[in-house]
């Protein structure tokens, strides 16, 4: 067990927590939050594996991938939130399935 492994493990924990919340939550804001947590987990794993030789400079390729990934996930977050606001304005809904109906829907 060394430092990169430790962070990589944190990354997969975050990913699993994110995927869990993404599927069982209904509120759209919560799902977008969960998506971001999933993303953080993946990025943490990528950066951790780039840093596997202690002392040496880390591998720059995963860093570049993570920078790209962050921008992509921000684009999705922003577009998703705008769409959510529009849906709320138009239909009054904040979830694809009515949250009053059941707590454990399985939209995904």
């Amino acid at each position: 067990m060394n430092q990169p492994t430790w962070y990589a493990l944190t990354g997969v924990i975050l990913f699993s927590m994110g995927i869990h919340a993404f599927v069982i939550r209904t509120h759209l804001v919560r799902r977008i939050l969960a998506f971001n947590i999933m993303g953080s987990g993946v990025f943490l794993l990528l950066v951790a594996i780039a840093h596997r030789i202690p002392g040496a400079a880390p591998d720059p390729v995963p860093h570049a991938l993570v920078l790209t990934g962050i921008v992509v996930s921000v684009s999705f977050t922003a577009f998703g939130l705008v769409l959510l606001k529009k849906i709320y304005a138009k239909t009054g809904k904040t979830a694809l399935i009515d949250p009053t109906e059941s707590t454990s829907d399985q939209t995904n």
């Binding site: 993303g39 993946v42 999705f76 998703g80 769409l83 239909t91 694809l96």
Partner: peptide, 17 residues
């Protein structure tokens, strides 16, 4: 709009995996 949102969410989940 709702269909678009559902599609977007599915795509987000799929691409993260």
């Amino acid at each position: 709009l709702i269909a678009g949102m559902r599609y977007l969410l599915v795509a987000m989940l799929g691409s993260m995996c």
